[in-house]
Computed example of a mutant assay.
Amino acid sequence: MGESIAAKAIISKLLAARPHLNIVVTTTTPTGAKQIIEGLGDKVTHHYSPCDLPGTIKRFVKRIRPLGLVIMETELWPNWLYHMRKAKLPVVLANARMSQKSADKYAKISSLSEQMMQSLSLVLAVCENDAERFIHLGVKQKNCLITGNIKFDQHFVPSDINEYFPPWKDDSKGCIWLAASTHKGEDKLLLSAHQKVLKSCPKAKLIIVPRHPERFDEVANLVSEYGLSLARRSQPGSWDGQCDVLLGDTMGELMQAYELSDVAFVAGSLVPIGGHNMIEPAMLGKPVLSGPYVHNFQEIFNELKEHAGIRQADSAEDICREVVELLQSPEQRMAMGANAKMVVERSRGALNRTVEALESFLLDKA
């Protein structure tokens, strides 16, 4: 979904300047498709991405007859790249990220990865380290530009009245922490941390939002196993202002959950997933917490840490300590959130740079 949101921003800006463009967008998940279909409607043509098999890609390319391909972030598929190269069509990798962990994996299959990297006509990297990794793997230096991370240019207008969970809107102000985009293996740690938080902050509330919808019921059962009272965002009949935990079991509402919270823990970082988007809570001026596995967002983490906008914790005890300290100190909480927001504000501009690069590279062919 994150890639779809970034793609939507690029496409909207392109179409604003050139409304005649015929753009086909492919996604691989229903949530990504929803972002494109609801956000762009009939301004684009949407298809689910074909499987990366030689015959499938060949037929799809023949049917679509593209003038070029823009890939978001790191969705590198060998057959897509092969057929575009064979057809002598340009391929641009936009908002391109390459963690050291991913680079090491590509390096192990150097013969294939070098061929793939040389198929990229232009790489618009989010930072210098990403650019260097792409170049090391085989992208020509002249084909690699640093444009920044489009996710810094996302805009979310906070509402005066947050309706994400009305029972907590007023009475629980200053007591809510959020565990966002959790994976299997993290929920138990976070629920254990909340049990400990309640001993120091009896009014504390936890919003827990699993990354994948198929885990909603599983996490709901875990909340009960930990003896914590539960409400579900999707079931207004369960809403109770006295509940210990709110399960965010809806899609596309994470920003509203961030807005309601006072402290944000970005998950996918307590297990070796590599972390999720820290920019979203930082953009809203929330103090950010994270586990130790942040390689997918290492540069952003480093910048947030350098400016005291994020802290790390890797155990239930550490998470509890950080949450309690921030919930009990409004001054600390506000200062840390302001630091995080400052990092986002000064990092904007990637969207304009990306669109300018695409216009000069692709649109003259349209």
Rank of each mutant, 00 (worst) to 15 (best):
I300W: 00
A257M: 07
A107V: 06
E317P: 09
A366C: 12
S290Y: 01
Y258A: 00
P50S: 06
V209K: 05
R321P: 00
A9L: 15
N149D: 08
V343Y: 01
G274W: 06
P272C: 08
L67S: 14
E280F: 01
L124F: 02
V323F: 06
A264D: 01
I71L: 14
Q195K: 12
T354D: 02
P167Q: 09
G227Q: 07
S200F: 14
K286L: 04
L69I: 09
W80Y: 15
N277A: 06
F165Q: 03
T29G: 12
K13T: 14
K188Y: 12
P287R: 01
V263G: 04
S119Y: 01
E331W: 10
P167F: 09
E114Q: 12
Y48H: 10
A335M: 12
P78M: 05
M117R: 03
S347Y: 06
G138D: 04
G285D: 04
V61L: 14
N221D: 14
A7D: 04
E163L: 09
Y48D: 09
S49V: 10
L190R: 03
T28S: 15
P66R: 04
P19H: 09
V343P: 01
V157A: 09
E303D: 13
N162S: 02
K8A: 15
L230D: 10
K101F: 08
V61P: 05
N302E: 15
Y293E: 09
K43Q: 12
K13L: 15
D160V: 11
M334Q: 10
V24K: 07
H194I: 05
A179M: 06
P158I: 02
T31Q: 15
S99I: 05
G41S: 14
P167C: 09
Q141Y: 07
V343I: 05
V209I: 14
F216H: 09
L14K: 04
L189E: 03
V271M: 12
L228D: 13
S229I: 12
N296E: 10
R311L: 12
L53F: 06
K188S: 14
C243L: 07
H155C: 08
A204L: 08
R63Q: 13
G309R: 00
A282D: 04
F301V: 04
T45D: 02
R63P: 07
L145W: 03
S121P: 02
S261T: 05
S269M: 06
N79P: 01
L40H: 08
I5H: 08
G39D: 01
T27M: 04
V197K: 02
G248T: 03
L289N: 05
K142P: 03
I109C: 11
D244N: 15
V123F: 05
R97G: 01
E163R: 06
I146T: 13
A125H: 03
K286A: 03
L67I: 14
E325P: 03
E75G: 07
A350D: 02
I319R: 02
N339E: 04
D52L: 02
K365S: 08
A338N: 13
S229G: 14
E38G: 06
M116R: 01
S4W: 13
D244S: 12
R333C: 09
L327M: 08
